[in-house]
């Protein structure tokens, strides 16, 4: 049974087909959130072409995310980063059996529409691309396809869920090969969840109302989340994961799974690295196995990475205030 807090019965994305055996519903919260639940304990890998997608599938990835450029290359290239070429997305969809996701710009309703029509399995409204709307995210209830969004805090996560996100991930700092920011974000979300759970357990409704105002979300979703003591949707780690130990560490902090961006295909040992990160994610609570996974890769072949303090572009700040 899935927690369905914040669900809207008037969502335009819910499509009802009449059939001889009764109503057939598409795009319900159970189907959207349920899809994300099937990815739990898995690794979603960023890919830019068919060859990389097949390496990812063979390595045991639960899904691939199609981009035009890997996040670290987006940083280098500068300019405006947009959704990937539809032709490449379609090629990848017809060459792997696992789900295929793609990114659209924050607030870009029509990049999202185009991706929905392409039939991708999930849309990532992502800060890696250049935002199209500085004040609004997409109203995701209007879509039958589920969305994942990034968040740096509980407030951001709940705002995205209230807009219809079926899955949350940390933002981290994409394209850096540096997990520090993802660690900060998941710890902040966990701390804030503990805090509202404590308020809920104490029975202080006035304080929960105060939290809802502070988070800029409805009281109902705060109350439901506080009662659960976790986000009502699946929460993955993303942004800067480059090694098996990085993945295992984030799993140990309570993440439901892992997104790897530049960390695999910007390393020179992509195949081994993809496989080793999958192994470390599955067996994160067995340090002996994580060691075996870490041994499969060579640190000299890791992406060089960037110190977050010196960055001119902090992708994580995109869309945070809305």
């Amino acid at each position: 049974m899935l927690p369905l807090s914040g669900e809207r019965s008037d969502a335009k994305g819910i499509v009802c087909d009449k059939s001889s055996s009764g109503d057939v519903l598409h795009g319900t919260s159970t189907l959207k959130r349920g899809f994300a639940h099937m990815l739990k304990n898995g690794v979603v890998m960023d890919v830019t072409n068919v060859e990389q997608a097949q390496i990812a599938e063979e390595a045991g990835a639960v899904s691939v995310m199609v981009l035009d450029k890997l996040p670290s290359d987006v940083r280098k290239a500068g300019g405006v980063a947009r959704t990937a070429s539809i032709r490449i997305i379609e090629e990848i969809m017809s060459s792997v059996t696992i789900p295929v996701m793609a990114k659209c710009r924050i607030g870009h309703v029509y990049e999202a529409r185009v991706l929905e029509e392409t039939n991708v399995d999930m849309i990532d409204e992502s800060e890696v691309l250049t935002p199209a709307d500085e004040t609004h995210h997409i109203w995701k209830w209007d879509f039958t396809t589920p969305f994942v969004n990034g968040a740096r805090s509980l407030a951001e996560a709940l705002r995205r869920i209230e807009e219809g996100a079926a899955m949350i991930r940390t933002k981290g700092e994409p394209g850096t090969g540096n997990v520090a920011e993802a660690v900060t974000h998941i710890k902040k979300v966990n701390d804030e969840l503990r805090a509202i759970k404590a308020i809920y357990d104490s029975g202080d409704n006035q304080d929960l109302v105060r939290m809802a105002r502070e988070f800029k979300v409805s009281y109902d979703i705060v109350e439901e989340t506080a009662k659960l003591g976790r986000l009502p949707v699946v929460n993955f780690a993303a942004g800067g994961i480059a090694t098996p130990a990085d993945a295992a560490y984030l799993m140990s902090l309570g993440c439901d799974g892992i997104f790897v961006g530049s960390g695999i295909f910007n390393a020179t040992d992509a195949k081994e690295r993809a496989r080793s990160i999958v192994l470390a994610t599955t067996f994160w609570n067995e340090p002996e196995k994580v060691k075996e996974a870490q041994k499969m890769i060579d640190e000299r072949q890791s992406m060089l990475g960037l110190d977050v303090k010196t960055l001119e572009l902090r992708m994580q700040e995109r869309g945070s205030s809305a």
Binding site: G22, V24, H26, G34, T97
Partner: peptide
């Protein structure tokens, strides 16, 4: 047959 009913947009709920 895997993915027999199509991709995620075709995922559905129905009484059986």
């Amino acid at each position: 047959e895997r993915n027999s009913f199509g991709r995620q947009r075709d995922s559905f709920q129905a009484d059986i």
